[in-house]
Amino acid sequence: MPVLAGILPGGGLQAGAAYSVTNSTTLAMALLAGPSGAGAWCSVIGMPTFSVEAAAGFGIALDKLVLVPHPGDQWLTVTAAMVDVVSIVLTCVPQHVAPADASRLMARLRQRGAALVTMGRWPHSEATLSVTGSNWQGLGSGTGHLRSRRMRITAHASTGRSRTADLWLPDLQHGPWSTSLSNSVPAVHGGTEQQEFFSRSAS
């Protein structure tokens, strides 16, 4: 995902690292989409509301996606077992994780070369991504339907540096409606380095 690669430290998801996503499942799917499309196995743990249809729309390969919606009180064991076998683990972190457990999981992650994406805060994350602005198009007052979305994404790296980028959702998603949209709005949908809706800033 070129837009996300631009704001992630190291230019993309690094093996052995953890990333946090605070308030958007869509953003987490966007993180998974690139590696999954390239053939990596992904796993989603503890997220019963994860929509596989939306994931498929992002280009996540469903035949290489493993879901464990209800790990119960064995979250840590299940996540550690998944880290052993899949490349990317997306998980919803339970309320209380002991710091020692978190460190052990991180060690496992580095040893296996997998990447962890957590929904919610995680003490050892390389970067925390959040959606700081969202703008929908296509919906009026009683008319139309949701068509496309602009998201402003902010990544706070663990070094204290934060970067912002804008994501144009139809770039990521595949579907009949997205092609019709790109036909109707050719000026907007013009390649990976698309037109900026918000001024891009790096601080």
Partner: peptide, 15 residues
């Protein structure tokens, strides 16, 4: 993981 949680706990999905 299946032997920990049960057969129906590890899933693949289809649309």
């Amino acid at each position: 993981v299946q032997s920990m949680l049960g057969h129906g706990a590890v899933l693949t999905a289809m649309v």
